[in-house]
Design a protein around this nucleic acid. Structure first.
Length: 591
RNA sequence: GGUCCGGUAGCUCAGUUGAAUAGAGCAAUUGCCUUCUAAGCAAUAGGUCAUUGGUUUGAAUCCAAUCCGGAUCACCA
């Protein structure tokens, strides 16, 4: 149990005993004491002033006095400054916390709670390679799943592959026209990049066709519809839906190239899935929702045969759920997929990791399911995150301003290699060890960079400045871990160390920080927010480095001190590794 | 235009269930490697918390209005 949750009931009781007033724990503000004041935890007194009709100073004295008298083992001192009661918790209490948890690898984690949570993330298109935005999605989804697992949930990670539609046909047309039988193998290109190039080629050629038509006097809008390439793509989509064998064969071939490419990237970044869904298989079942909605009178049919739902009462618009030609739209597919997922897994919660540009879509999806009375409707949670932008603005595939995921990782590995070589600390590493270290550092830097910011916020990525390896970064934390491990290799913790009397300030700071890990985890899970962990782990690492520069572990003043510091070091390493693990970041033993 | 999100140091971001002098990192300046890894530590400097008004003992945080930026409101997915 965290300190705060132990302090609060004692304060409530003191208030009751002293003034006969009942307060809820939620009415109390208890936080760690600011470093410039004496004490460990602080109670804010202002909120009682009015009701109890006493000055803050007087209240502080009375409560502080009562607490230290009633619990001399827990509160050893207090002071009152302005409206704040600062309480001191004795060293032996902190030492006890340390000794009971320092070797607990599951510190902060919870036992299984029988909650089943589905996390859908990544969800790529098969017509282009992954970019920086996808990486944010992947890292976020994977991390949130890991956090939920640590909090006791059973997790099903799923991925919906967008493998059908007009955009896929564009790549196919372009390859037929311009490919001349080239393959990823023959051109030595990663499959997803190979197909992505044809998507770009299509758009270039299409643009030219449109220009030619408008030059001939046609309106732009009309030209965009009449361009031969577009007509060809549309025809291909129809052929695909009709199951025309040669089109299906081409589609399968090109998709297999893309999947081979994706697999390499997923493997590299550590994304994995328990269940794959393909839109080519799930886009049809949604249609039965349309019948259901019509029967319930929830949907209505327009004269042209298209089906709609009226959400104006909810402050939204009329939303199309079925085209006039009877084919399904995006929302129809998603309705069907939600049902399919629920039938298969009977989840308690279903988390969709999708960018915030789809907030409206997800709102409508949930609303429709609620109106249809689906039992799983309320358990849908849209974990929305902001776009990753460049200093010049939003990334656009068509304008070639996307930061490609594979290239990004490669560049990070190069930076890691270069910096490591400059420092020259790992000359005795084997080639395979070096490779692993560079990967660990590169991905650590990249993941930390993308996860340290609140997911809900848009973030700006500046490729000029690239990603740093100093300060608030993954490598900084990884370095701290390696430092600790270096000590522990030289001197391991003895079996049953004795309490070491009083604590120095920096020792206590570290134990206090470590003690907060479970509470931090809880908050991060509640908010579905890995950045809470990232910030915490960074501050912990910083505290350790401050301590490290000031005090020696190996040459501590006494054997007791040495054991105490070894315990602190070991627990710090555990918590760093644990927290980073929840972010999907590995920590090296040496670097 | 409707709806939603955001605006904090030169830059990137914390802090937003109201609480002490608004915090980090980067960039800048300055010290510290003969003892556990200097990818580190310590220090200096940098702020009209978009603006105005309100609520409050107390506001970056809550409310209202305004300004600026973004997303979305497709028979695309």
């Amino acid at each position: 149990m965290s300190i705060v949750s132990q302090v609060k009931p004692l304060v409530v009781k003191a208030l009751k005993d002293l003034y006969g007033q009942d307060y809820q724990e939620s009415e109390l503000t208890v936080s760690t004491t600011k470093p410039e004041f004496e004490g460990d935890y602080t109670l804010v007194l202002f909120s009682f002033v009015k009701q109890l009709k006493k000055s803050p100073e007087q209240l502080g004295e009375e409560i502080g006095n009562a607490l230290t008298k009633a619990h001399p083992d827990f509160f050893t001192a207090y002071n009152v400054i302005k409206g704040f009661l600062n309480l001191t918790i004795p060293d032996h209490y902190w030492i006890q916390v340390l000794q009971s948890e320092f070797s607990n690898k599951r510190f902060g984690f919870k036992e299984a709670n029988r909650q089943k949570v589905m996390v859908e993330y990544s969800s790529p298109n098969t017509n282009k390679p992954l970019h920086l935005g996808h990486l944010r999605n992947n890292f976020l989804g994977w991390s949130v799943a890991q956090m939920l697992k640590a909090s006791g949930c059973e997790i099903i990670k799923s991925c919906v592959v967008n493998d059908r539609g007009i955009h896929i046909c564009k790549s196919m047309i372009a390859w037929q026209r311009f490919g001349h039988g080239a393959t990823p193998q023959s051109t030595n290109t990663k499959g997803d990049h190979f197909v992505g190039e044809y998507y770009v080629k299509f758009n270039d050629a299409y643009k030219k066709e449109v220009e030619a038509l408008t030059a001939g006097g046609m309106k732009k809008e009309e030209a965009e519809k009449e361009a031969p390439l577009m007509k060809e793509a549309q025809q291909m989509l129809q052929d695909w839906e009709a199951g025309k064998p040669d089109v299906i064969a081409l589609w399968k071939k090109m998709n297999s190239w893309v999947y081979a490419g994706f697999d390499v990237t997923y493997d590299r970044i550590g994304s994995d899935f328990d269940k794959m869904y393909y839109e080519s298989e799930t886009y049809l079942p949604g249609k039965k929702f349309v019948d259901e909605g019509l029967q319930q009178g929830l949907f209505f049919k327009k004269e042209d045969g298209s089906v709609w739902i009226d959400l104006t009462a909810e402050g939204l618009d009329e939303k199309l759920v079925l085209r006039k030609d009877g084919t399904s739209v995006y929302i129809t597919q998603d309705l069907g997929l939600a049902q399919q997922k629920y039938e298969e897994f009977r989840y308690d919660q279903s988390i969709y990791v999708i960018a915030d540009e789809q907030n409206y879509h997800m709102k409508v999806l949930k609303l429709i399911l609620q109106k249809l009375g689906k039992p799983y409707a309320d358990s849908i949670y849209h974990l929305n995150y902001g776009m990753v932008e460049l200093p010049s603005g939003r990334m656009k595939s068509r304008e070639g301003t996307v930061v490609d995921a594979d290239e990004m990782i490669e560049e990070m590995v190069n930076v890691a290699k270069q910096k490591t070589e400059e420092l020259g600390k790992v000359k005795d590493f084997l080639v395979t060890e070096l490779k692993e270290l560079y990967d660990t550092l590169a991905l650590g830097a990249l993941k930390f960079f993308l996860l340290r910011v609140d997911p809900k916020k848009r973030m700006i990525f500046n490729p000029e400045e690239s990603i740093d390896f100093h300060g608030f970064t993954g490598p900084f934390i990884q370095y701290t871990h390696a430092r600790i491990k270096s000590i522990l290799r030289k001197q391991s913790v003895a079996g049953k160390p004795e309490p070491a009397g009083s604590l120095l300030k920096l020792e206590k700071d570290l134990i206090m920080a470590l003690e907060q890990y479970p509470a931090v985890l809880e908050q991060a899970v509640a908010e579905h927010n890995p950045s809470v962990i990232a910030i915490y782990v960074f501050n912990l690492a910083k505290s350790f480095n401050t301590f490290y520069a000031e005090h020696s572990v190996m040459n501590a003043e006494s054997e007791e001190k040495k054991q105490l510091r070894l315990q602190i070091a070991e627990m710090t390493a555990h918590v760093i590794a644990s927290g980073m693990g929840l972010l999907g970041i590995r920590v090296p033993e040496r670097m």
